[in-house]
Design a binder for these strands. Structure first.
Lengths: 192, 192
DNA sequence: GGCAGACGATAACATTTGTTATCAAATGAA
DNA sequence: TTCATTTGATAACAAATGTTATCGTCTGCC
């Protein structure tokens, strides 16, 4: 799992082995809850195989905020960093193979590597990138119609449309399942 | 303007004076464009007095993404950091007193202070905070009705409701000016 | 003072989107 | 296989929101 990244990190073999051995491999079925709402999340997950959905409960309704696929890392980020109760549920969609690491181990590693500017800069860059991604998604809710958001999703994140059940996509786009059906139906008729 | 922050920064008087002298004071009327769409923004602004709106053009329509008031710093953040053409317009709403600093000076200062862990941590914290703020605003578009968003705005950012013309608030909430009028009207009638 | 433009309320109508209910197809478990 | 569950399409109706137009008020400017 981690060998593919070995050459990207300027670490000794010893340190590399020490760090990668902090990760624990698990296999879980679909619809496994990895982090519950209200729990203080002490785990960070990396997806080897499968697909994860982050959602929260709003007046009894499922609202999906993000999807994650192979090679992405997932946590209830605010909970993981600030030790707040998680506002969101993290749950598998497909049967998945995951690696998790505890917050303690992450903190230890971060403390050790912070002297390596290359890694520090990369982490800061990741933070900015995540900020920009949120901005982009946020803007689309103000400026685009649901139909346009769906078309952008097909264009920019085809994995989601291909692998995720449609009612989750609807809750991600902020529309009802019925309306997403209508949107798809209209698009098909327009193209004929 | 900067004296009120003097004791928050662990710097020598010499460095403090050197850094604060990088800022330039300007007074501008209402509706002054500070950063145009498509421009690579090389300035960061701090508001001494007044109020600023960040917006972008979407098919001829004004869409407001943020408001800023006294003591806040404003830039077309992605443009400022990554030197992209700015996707947004930054514009005063009220006659304002501003201080601006060039990107060159910011880079110089950041390079010098990065050895001070207190400042580095504070900067990283600010980045996280901004990420979380975006998340919150973004969630509200998925989970709240326009009426609820307007009520939250009154609750959490009363300055905006008090100081900003209503059609800008409508474009910030993602509704038409007519509909925001209706929302206000319904709230008034409900309370009587 | 008078005028133009900005701002906001309201009405009438059009369009979009949600809700509820029903049905059909696919899927998974016993 | 068979049955229950999940998933998705569609119809009919209700509610929310946008669009266009009109009017009144306020403000800044000459």
């Amino acid at each position: 799992m981690f060998d593919q990244f070995r050459n990207k990190f300027p670490l000794t073999d010893e340190k590399w082995n020490e760090y990668t051995s902090c990760f624990n491999r698990i296999e879980v079925p679909a619809k496994t809850v990895l982090i519950e709402e209200g729990e203080v999340s002490k785990k960070l997950f990396i997806i080897e195989k499968g697909c994860i959905r982050v959602w929260f409960n709003n007046n009894g309704k499922d609202l999906t905020s993000q999807f994650f696929f192979e090679n992405q890392s997932v946590a209830s980020i605010e909970s993981f960093i600030k030790k707040f109760p998680s506002p969101v549920v993290v749950e598998t969609i497909e049967p998945s193979v995951l690696w998790w690491i505890s917050k303690n181990d992450v903190d230890t590693i971060l403390e050790e590597i912070k002297e390596i500017p290359e890694l520090r800069d990369r982490l800061i860059n990741m933070l900015f990138q995540r900020t920009f991604d949120y901005m982009k998604h946020f803007f689309s809710f103000i400026k685009d119609s649901p139909t346009q958001r769906y078309l952008s999703l097909i264009e920019e994140k085809p994995q989601i449309v291909q692998r995720v059940p449609q009612h989750y996509i609807a809750s991600y786009l902020g529309v009802s399942t019925v309306h997403l059906s209508r949107i798809k139906s209209k698009l098909v008729h327009k193209n004929n």
